[in-house]
Amino acid sequence: MSSDFETYEQDFGTITADVTNKIGRIPKLNGEEKTQLVLNVDKQLEEVRELLEQMDLEVREIPVQSRAMYNSRLKSYKQEMDKLEKDFKRSRIAYSDEVRNELLGEDAGSSENQRAHLLDNTERLERSSRRLEAGYQIAVETEQVGQEILSNLHSDREKIQRARERLRETDANLGKSSRILTGMLRRSNFPKVETSLMPRIYFNLIIVLDSR
């Protein structure tokens, strides 16, 4: 029983390898060729499905004690089959690099071309590195300028606070001065009142004394 299972396994391996190879070629082909290959792969996938069914039947006839091992192997083959089917579906709608190369007139197979590509990429990398380094330098310079600006802002803040304090002091002093001046005015006005009243008082006194 197990020998039959192993035969199926070998067939499964051979067919899936062939299918994988063909799936890889599908995106690169066009028209009739592509259709033929798709049909071919479809047929092979059908064969693989049948093989898996056969394996399933074989596993059921294997004694219980060794069945678990074969079951796990069968499970992994089924997963592989699912993956192949997905890849097949993708390959039918996949874009090929060949199409791009054909359009842009590039020969991807040419080693010279690849070398030129590599050199170009290296140069681009170096340019990017230089640009990054320059950017880093500018960032560091900006940081230094920023530090200076912040330091200046802080000292300006202190100056403004000092000026505000001094203004408050000045305001208080002005208030005091105003009060002192008001007092002085009052005192300077008092003698004027006194001098204007005194003659009248004397005059009234004289009249009073005279009438007696």
Partner: peptide, 11 residues
């Protein structure tokens, strides 16, 4: 500890 000047501390 100063929010404005802390960036100079490392210097």
């Amino acid at each position: 500890d100063n929010p404005l000047l802390k960036y100079s501390a490392k210097e």
